[in-house]
């Protein structure tokens, strides 16, 4: 626990909306050890974006912190002042966003932007430039020396995302937060970006918090996974635990629905009946109960997390009872 670079303890965040208080995150606890890659998976509305905003300290103004801590290396980020937080962002903690086009300034050259983000380092201009070239080469931008003078629109979408990754790693952070970095990319480019992230993460030894709704990407890249549903972490564990021995009915439903995991071609695809609960009036008991095929009487009481293995945890009364999920043949 103490070795965790990032730890969330019972984090609860709500949004004040005209229709009432919307509970976007409820009692979320997570740990990300140094040098590991933690994937957060979940569908729209599960709270993963809110979680990222909370960690980087950029929650919207109508957000209310109801409790909990976000510990970076043991220090609570939520208790920090704006100034202190700014020093951590972009130094110890950097972010790769979903849309590389809007993340880069369109009117400045890549070189200027890569030099500008090193403003805290005392290095000379030439040294900063050299580092920029080095990192462009690392993310396999051909001819980095020349391309430093080009503008974002002169690069393809995949290259822009690789540049964003280079900028995130350039500052040698302890933690990189990658918020759906491959969602806007084609499958072939997604593969490439993931392979690159994996390789550079290994070299730099930093920890990565990887947010995605694409389970395939998570399986490829991450060491650990947390599955979120409607603002709660319903299951977490090592990649193997989640993909081979899922215990929470929601995780299982999610895996079952993935057409990539259905071996035989079928024209009737599985779905999760029902819809997300209204988070302004979350249902009593287990949050997944209204849609759960395995529910019983105990589910009227909110389940706590149960340990199923050294790292594997699921918030379900029936976690130990459920039969293993039939696995697609690899």
């Amino acid at each position: 626990m103490a070795a965790d670079i990032l730890a969330l303890r019972g984090l609860s965040v709500a949004f004040e909306t005209p229709g009432g208080r919307l509970h976007a995150l409820r009692d979320v606890s997570l740990g990300l050890a140094r040098g590991r890659v933690l994937g957060i998976a979940g569908e729209s509305g599960c709270g993963k974006s809110t979680l990222v905003s909370a960690v980087i300290g950029l929650l919207p103004s109508n957000a209310r912190l109801l409790g909990g801590e976000v510990l970076l290396d043991g220090r609570d980020l939520l208790a920090m002042g704006a100034e202190e937080m700014r020093a951590i962002r972009g130094q110890r903690m950097t972010v790769v966003f979903q849309d590389p086009m809007t993340a880069l300034n369109p009117v400045l050259t890549i070189g200027r932007q890569m030099v500008a983000i090193q403003y805290r380092s005392g290095a000379s201009g030439a040294e900063k430039r050299r580092r920029a070239v080095e990192y462009l080469a690392r993310v396999r931008i051909p001819d980095p020396e020349r391309r430093l003078g080009q503008y974002p629109h002169e690069f393809s979408g995949g290259m822009r995302q690789r540049i964003c990754i280079a900028m995130a790693l350039l500052l040698k952070p302890d933690l990189v937060i990658a918020d759906e970095p491959t969602t806007a990319l084609d499958a072939t480019l997604e593969l490439e970006v993931i392979a690159l992230l994996r390789e550079l993460q290994g070299e730099a030894g930093c920890a990565v918090l990887f947010i995605s709704h694409h389970l395939g990407a998570i399986a490829r890249l991450c060491d650990d996974v947390a599955i979120m549903y409607a603002g709660e972490v319903v299951e977490r564990g090592a990649v193997r635990d989640i993909f081979h021995d899922a215990r929470h009915p929601y995780t299982r439903a999610l895996l079952t629905c993935d057409p990539g995991r259905i071996r035989e071609a079928t024209r009737t695809l599985p779905t999760i009946p029902g819809a997300l609960p209204d988070l302004r009036r979350p249902p009593a008991g287990c949050i997944f109960r209204p849609r759960c095929a395995d529910r019983d009487d105990r589910c009227a009481v909110r389940p706590g997390e149960r340990a199923l293995g050294p790292t594997h945890r699921a918030a379900c009364h029936r976690a130990q009872e459920l039969a293993p999920l039939a696995r697609p043949v690899a």
Partner: peptide, 22 residues
């Protein structure tokens, strides 16, 4: 831009009776 799957908890707030709110 298409609507990628990110959670819209905050966005869910808008929408009701825009004129009166204005």
């Amino acid at each position: 831009m298409s609507a990628p799957a990110s959670d819209d908890a905050a966005a869910a707030a808008g929408g009701r009776a825009p004129r009166l709110a204005g």
